[in-house]
């Protein structure tokens, strides 16, 4: 019990805080471990020979170390590097533009004096309930907008996410209205208030939605599946998805004698692909974390 005994010079910790911290540590440690373990297994499996996985399953430390899976993936390194480039470019441009539009729209919809705000919010929300379906969207993109093999086809569909818009609106609603009112008295217009006050006051909200947008764009293979047929324009996730799904489909069909010559990706390769695809995006998270510190935002403006 020595651990929690207050030192003489330290501020006295009330019993409730001790309870909170002990319970918190236990809960978080437990949850963090069950979240971390599979990832460790995954990384370990990606460095294990296929034979060892097949015979003795997954393990924390590779039973039989092998980099075959990565060698297979990087057999053609220019493909992977180019795909990284495509993913990076789409993620960057999409999330920057998306974040701006979403936060600007959310600000407008949070204004209590905007007469039609409920109707307009409903206009947005309705699209999450009803959609025209795959075919009509495909026809629009390919035949009317001519976006086949165009990067815009990967950017546009994820740009205005209504869920994020509504979450963002709830964040902005939480900012005290008095701050905006005093700015208005000083003669600031709506756009100025948005750019000069709302954006700096919402760093943690922007970081959250920005993170989600980045993840959405980075992880999106679906739209590439629909609109991209040029191999050189495939984003990383779609390239990996292709490898991942190929084995199942090939096994289902396995039609001609020679199809077996095309390599069917093994379990180790699937794991390695996850590592390759998530690698860089994992670094984004700690960066975003910096903005989740209590009280920084409001304090800064008030001070």
């Amino acid at each position: 019990m020595k651990l929690f005994q207050p030192r003489r010079n330290a501020i006295k910790m009330p019993a409730s805080t001790v309870v909170f911290n002990v319970a918190g540590y236990l809960l978080l440690s437990f949850f963090a471990i069950i979240c971390l373990l599979p990832f460790v297994f995954l990384i370990s499996a990606s460095f294990t020979s296929e034979k060892a996985i097949a015979l003795s399953g997954f393990s924390l430390i590779p039973k039989e170390f092998s980099t075959d899976a990565y060698r297979l993936l990087f057999r053609n390194p220019t493909d992977i590097l180019r795909a990284y480039g495509v993913s990076g470019m789409i993620t960057l441009s999409g999330s920057v533009v998306g974040l701006f539009i979403i936060s600007m729209t959310a600000y407008v919809l949070s204004r209590p004096y905007l007469r039609y705000r409920y109707q307009i919010t409903f206009y947005f929300y309705f699209t999450t309930l009803f959609s025209g379906g795959l075919l009509s969207v495909y026809i629009l993109f390919v035949r009317y907008l001519g976006l086949k093999n165009n990067y815009l086809a990967l950017i546009l569909p994820l740009l205005v996410n209504v869920f994020y818009l509504l979450i963002m609106r709830s964040f902005i609603t939480a900012i005290p209205e008095s701050i905006f009112e005093s700015a208005k008295i000083d003669g600031a217009g709506e756009l100025t208030i948005f750019l000069r006050l709302v954006l700096p006051l919402s760093t943690s909200a922007l970081a959250t939605i920005g993170l989600f947008l980045i993840l959405d764009y980075w992880n999106d293979w679906y739209h590439a599946m629909l609109y991209m047929s040029d191999y050189k324009k495939f984003p990383l996730q779609y390239m990996l998805y292709n490898l991942l799904s190929a084995s199942e489909a090939i096994a289902r069909l396995s039609r001609t004698a020679s199809i077996s010559v095309v390599e069917v990706p093994s379990r180790a390769v699937r794991m390695a692909m996850t590592v390759v695809a998530t690698g860089p995006i994992l670094l984004v998270y700690p960066f975003v974390q910096r903005y989740f510190v209590k009280g920084v935002t409001l304090g800064a403006v008030k001070g």
Binding site: L134, L135, Y138, V142, R143, M225, S229, L244, S245, A249
Partner: peptide
């Protein structure tokens, strides 16, 4: 143009249904 193994069930009918200009396509009972 390639239709991936994993998504030909979605994409193959979609391409034909959408009327996208295609000159030649693989066709099979499956």
């Amino acid at each position: 143009n390639w239709i991936g193994w994993g998504d030909f069930q979605t994409k193959y009918p979609l391409i034909l249904a959408s009327g996208e200009p295609v000159d030649l396509i693989y066709a099979s009972v499956w």
